[in-house]
Every structure is written in structure tokens, then in C-alpha cells.
Design a protein around this nucleic acid. Structure first.
Lengths: 227, 227
DNA sequence: TGATATATCTCGAGT
DNA sequence: ACTCGAGGTATATCA
């Protein structure tokens, strides 16, 4: 990893064109060859960048002025990030080695696990038929039966948006062509459901259920509640 | 901007939980108080971060060992990024000042502007009714009339994918419920149209038009072409 | 402030 | 190589 703080001008041409006028910024060159340019705000997003795989070519500046070099970062798609250096304030390098990587908890897969364990939160007397119930166009998150024994397809999202409703609609359309399954209704379950998604679901006769991750995780054996 | 290269362990708890085992990484502290942790790969995305507005509290390590400090970065929502330092290899600071900011060209908004100015590229004798034509589920990018006076809804994307076709389909379904507008047909216009999107559009009777940004920008007053 | 749409989205998994 | 889905998406715009 090489860290350069320098006055620079940056031009990107590729999927779009973007231009950064001359100013002092941080330039990050990583071991995989990628380059990013950061201002002194926003944690997440660089002002400009080139993702790996890409190649950095340094063209020495003409004459004696400090900086002056032009860095050209190019990738296979023909995109180019061109950095023109004017004054270099800092230039340090350090070998970091590979990173052991990130461990996450609380993503959609966990919601599915938890809800599979507690389908009764969707309705009294409901039972789980199976997780990842296969269809021709992909697996339904949960297939359940309600207290009356009717089939219910459940689509789970962390954030429920319109796309998720469309997805469940496609499943339901397909599943309802199978007379053996009988009529299949739908439940759209998410930690957060956008108004648009709610509206579309209502229009399609799909029930929306808001999930609480901590509640689901905290559900105790109901027998314990007798005491 | 403060740049620290250090062996560190990182834990995030907030919208989910995430953990990074002890390893050498770059820690970026920006002037707005935001903090990000980078490995030696991937230009764009930090391993972990806290977006502004947030507060950095440094708790001195116990005893004499180098590093040892614990950094706690918290925001108003109660999310916390906790960085435990073990060995500090580099620690430099530099004042960057505000950035003049990025100038972009070629995004969807520009395509919409240009196409609104040149609806005749969609068909001889076409006219623009209005941009951002409102419907109950959101605005249609362009509403036009063809040479025969029939309504046409135009959805514009930089990259045309299946979602865009679904979106236009929803608009068309809604618009065609309004007998005053008469039958409304659809045009899906994009710089690049994925085969899947093209197929779905054909299935729905939606015409696909591939846009060329440079062509659109370069269209001159037709009268000039007489000379 | 909340909702909505865009993004050089990025990134990973699966085909 | 391409597609699809998820993301602590982030970010800007608009009500």
C-alpha cells in the first residue's frame, strides 16, 4: 500500500466522464494495483477510483518541477483514470499482507434461519414445509402451511422493496399453476418494508409482515413463559 | 486527514455485527470525523467504516505496550466501530482543506435532458408532452406523442436491465387504465440494453431504443445541415 | 425528515 | 463471461 498526499488533478473516462480540478488529496495505491483518490470527508466513497484489475503507468513530468508526473491507470475495458500531480506532500509505502477477512452477523440468511425456527410468528398453528423450496425459476425462501393446511410461500428480505414483491409474485404465479399444491398464498416478510412495496403487495393480495431480528432471536421456549 | 497503519482488530455493531481479526491495516480518519479501515486490496470499499456525523473517542491502552489504545467511533443511532490497536507502524496527519468537488458528465439525468431535446430520434414527428410525467407510482421519464398523436411513455436508463422494463410495464399498466390518455405504448431507451431486458420488452410489446450519448450531444440544428 | 431513484454502485455466488 | 442478488449499500433529490 502506497499513500501519497499531493496536489493533483484527476480525470476519469470510462462508463462516464468525471473531472476533479487541482486540489490537495490522498491517493491510495493498493497491492492489487487499484487506485483511489480521497478528499478529507466521507468515510466510504472515494472521489474517484479505478478498480482492479488495472495497470498503473507513471509518466515522468517534463522538466525539473516537483511532482509534475502523470499517472495513468487503465483497465481492460479501456477505462482510464489520469492523475496529474503538482506538489507531493507525503509519499509513504507499507506492506500489509493479505487480510483474514470480515465476519458478519445479522444478514438475510440469519433472518431466514430464525424465521424457519419460528414460523408461528407468521400465524397460529403454522408449520414449515421446507426452506429453499425449489421452483423452476429459483427457490422460495420458506414454504409453509397455515392452520387450515393451505400452502403459503414466504419471501424474506432484510429490506423489503418493490423488487422483492415482484419476485414473490413470479413464484406465486408459477406455484399456482401446480394443482397439487392447491392455491398458494404469499407472505412478504422483512425487517423494514418500504411504502411502495407495501402498496404493490396489497394490490397483489400479498400479506406483509414486519420482522424484528432481536425478537426472533430472543423467542424462548413458550413453555418457559408458564412460570 | 490522519493516516495510521497499524495492527488492529475491528468490531462493528449497529445495523449488523461485523468482526475483523487482528491484522495490519490502514486506518483513515478524515476531517469530518469519519473513520474507515482499509486492507491492501479493493479500491472502492473499506473493510469497515463509520460514516459522519460521528465521534471518535480514544481510550489510552493500559500499561506500557505500544499501541494498545482502543478507538471507539460512535454515531447518534447508537452504532459503534471499535478499533483495538496493537502495533502502530505509521501515523501521519495532513490538512487537506475542502475539495472543489467532482464534475460528472454522462449520467442518466443528462441522457434524459438530451433525449427530451431530441425526441425526434425516437421517431419522425414525435413531440414531447413533458419530462417526469407524474403517475401514482412515480414519474415517467418522458411522455411523448408520436406523429399520429398517440401517447408514448419513455423510460430512460444508462444501462437497460430487466428492472427497468418491469418499471415501465408498471407505468404502462397504470397509464392504460386512464381512458383519457388513450392507449399508451412504451419505449425503453438506454445506452446499453441487456439481452434479457430486450427479450422481456419484446414480450411486453415495448420498443427498445439504444441511445448514443455522443450522437445525442452532437445533434446540430437540422437547418445547419442544409449547407 | 422521509421516501425515492441512481450509482463508474461494489462484491460475491452461481451457471 | 455473464447474470443475479445483497449491501451496515452510499448518495442526491424532492416532497
Amino acid at each position: 500500500m502506497r499513500l501519497v498526499i499531493a496536489k493533483c488533478q484527476v480525470d476519469y473516462s470510462g462508463r462516464l466522464s468525471a473531472h476533479l480540478p487541482m486540489a490537495t488529496r490522498l491517493i491510495l495505491v493498493k497491492a492489487d494495483g487499484s487506485v483511489s483518490v480521497h478528499a478529507d470527508d466521507r468515510a466510504y466513497k472515494p472521489l474517484n477510483w479505478m478498480s482492479p484489475p488495472c495497470t498503473l503507468l507513471i509518466e515522468p513530468g517534463t522538466g525539473a518541477e516537483a511532482g509534475g508526473d502523470v499517472w495513468r491507470v487503465v483497465n481492460k475495458a479501456g477505462e482510464e483514470l489520469r492523475i496529474t500531480l503538482a506538489e507531493v506532500h507525503t509519499d509513504v509505502s507499507h506492506e500489509l499482507g493479505p487480510d483474514p477477512g470480515l465476519v458478519k452477523d445479522g444478514v438475510e440468511a440469519h433472518l431466514q434461519e430464525l424465521l424457519a425456527l419460528h414460523v408461528q410468528t407468521l400465524g397460529e398453528g403454522w408449520t414449515l414445509v421446507r426452506r429453499e423450496f425449489p421452483t423452476a425459476i429459483g427457490p422460495v425462501d420458506l414454504m409453509c402451511r397455515d392452520a387450515a393446511g393451505a400452502s403459503v410461500a414466504v419471501e424474506i428480505k432484510r429490506r423489503g422493496e418493490i423488487d422483492g414483491v415482484e419476485q414473490l409474485t413470479r413464484y406465486l404465479e408459477l406455484l399456482n399453476r401446480d394443482p397439487l399444491l392447491g392455491p398458494v398464498s404469499g407472505v412478504f416478510a422483512a425487517q423494514e418494508i418500504k411504502p411502495q412495496a407495501r402498496t404493490l403487495a396489497a394490490d397483489r393480495g400479498i400479506r406483509c409482515v414486519q420482522l424484528d431480528y432481536d425478537d426472533l432471536r430472543g423467542i424462548e421456549d413458550p413453555r418457559l413463559k408458564l412460570f
